Amino acid sequence: MTTEDVLQLTDAHGVRTLTLNRPKAYNSLTVELKERLLDALTQAAGDDAVRAIVLTGAGKAFCAGQDLKEHIGLLEAGDSAPLRTVAEHYNPIIRAIVDAPKPVIAAVNGPAAGAGAAFAYAADLRIAAASANFMMAFANVGLGPDSGASWTLQRLIGYGRALELMLLARTVDSTEALRIGLVSEVVADEDLPGRAHELAARLAAGPTAAFSKIKGTLSAAAQSTLEDALAAEDAAQSALGATADHTEAVRAFVEKRKPDFTGR
C-alpha cells in the first residue's frame, strides 16, 4: 500500500482501492483531495494491471461532499477557486468514473452527501454498509446539484424520487436505498471491505474489454434513439467478436472449463 496523505491506494488481485482519507473531516473534499482523486482515477483507468476499481472512505463516512470550511475561507479571501471547482474538479472526476474502461464500485461505508453521494451515483455498482446513508444537501447551502447528480440520480431511482431528494435534502438510509434501487446490496459495516473486494475481484477476473463496451453502449443508449442504440451494439459486438477474450470464452464453453480472460 502507498499512502498519498489524503488518499490511500491499495492494489490486490487486479483491484485498485481508492480510499478517501480525511476521516476527521468525514472525508470532505478539499482542493488537494479532489486533485489527488482525479489523478488516481486517471492513472487507474490507464493501467492495464488494474482491472477493477473500488472507491471508499476511511473512518465512519464515505464522503461529506465539499469541505465548506475551505470553501468559505477561499470565498472570503476573494479567491475564485471555489467558483471554478465544478469545471476543474467535479466534472472531470465524474467523467473519469463514468468513462473508466473497467468496472468502478462504490463501497459506501457511511454517510455520503452532496458531491460525495454523486461520486457513488456515478459508479457502476454501489454496495452500502448498514450505517450508510445518502443526502443531496445542495439546497441546504443555496446551490443546485453538481457532480453529475442531476443526470445519474434520476436514472437510478426515477425523476420523481430524485426531485424529491433534491428539493427536501432528505436523508436516505441504507434500507430505503436498497428498496428504491439506489444501491444493489447492503451488508454489515464490518463486512463491507471484504464484500466490495470480493465483487471487484470477480469483475477483475472477467472479460474487461466486454465490460468497457457494456458501459459505453448503455451510457449511449440512455441518450439515443433505438436505431442509434442498435448501431452502437452492432459496432461493439463486431469489435468484441475479434477479441482474444471472446475466442477464449467460446473455446472454454466447448471444452467445459472456466475461461481465462486477459482483457484483450
Rank of each mutant, 00 (worst) to 15 (best):
T2V: 09
T2E: 15
T3R: 13
E4K: 04
E4F: 10
E4Q: 14
V6F: 13
V6W: 08
V6Y: 12
L9S: 07
H13T: 09
R16T: 15
R16K: 09
L18P: 07
T19C: 12
T19M: 13
T19K: 07
N21C: 15
R22Q: 11
P23W: 14
A25L: 07
N27Y: 09
T30I: 13
V31E: 13
E32Q: 11
L33V: 12
E35Q: 10
E35C: 11
R36Q: 10
L38T: 00
L41D: 05
T42P: 02
T42S: 07
Q43M: 08
A44N: 01
A45Y: 02
A45W: 00
G46Y: 03
G46N: 15
D47C: 03
D47G: 04
A52Q: 00
L55A: 07
T56H: 07
G57H: 04
A58T: 05
F62L: 06
G65R: 00
G65H: 00
K69T: 11
K69N: 14
E70G: 07
E70M: 09
H71C: 08
A77P: 06
G78L: 05
T85F: 08
H89M: 08
N91Y: 05
V98F: 05
D99T: 03
D99H: 13
P101L: 02
V104S: 09
A106R: 03
V108Q: 01
A112P: 04
A115G: 12
A115T: 10
G116K: 03
F119C: 13
Y121D: 08
Y121V: 00
Y121A: 05
A123Q: 02
A128P: 01
S131F: 03
S131I: 04
S131E: 10
F134S: 00
M136Y: 12
A137L: 14
F138Y: 14
F138W: 15
N140Y: 04
V141D: 07
V141Y: 11
G142W: 02
G142F: 00
G144M: 08
D146I: 14
S147M: 14
G148Q: 03
W151L: 07
L153E: 09
Q154K: 10
L156H: 11
G158S: 15
G160E: 15
R161L: 13
A162T: 08
A162Y: 04
L165K: 06
L168V: 06
R170N: 15
T171A: 13
S174P: 02
T175H: 06
E176H: 03
R179E: 10
I180Q: 06
E185N: 05
V186Q: 00
V186G: 03
A188H: 11
D189V: 04
L192S: 03
L192I: 04
L192T: 04
P193Q: 11
R195F: 04
A196S: 11
L199A: 02
L199R: 01
L199V: 11
R202W: 12
L203N: 00
A204E: 02
A204Q: 00
A205D: 11
T208R: 15
A209S: 15
S212K: 07
K213F: 12
T217A: 12
S219I: 09
A222M: 14
A222K: 13
T225W: 08
A231W: 02
E233K: 10
D234H: 13
D234S: 11
A236L: 06
A239M: 13
G241R: 10
T243L: 07
A244N: 12
A244G: 12
D245L: 05
A249E: 06
V250K: 12
R251I: 08
A252W: 02
V254Q: 06
V254K: 14
R257A: 05
P259L: 03
F261A: 01
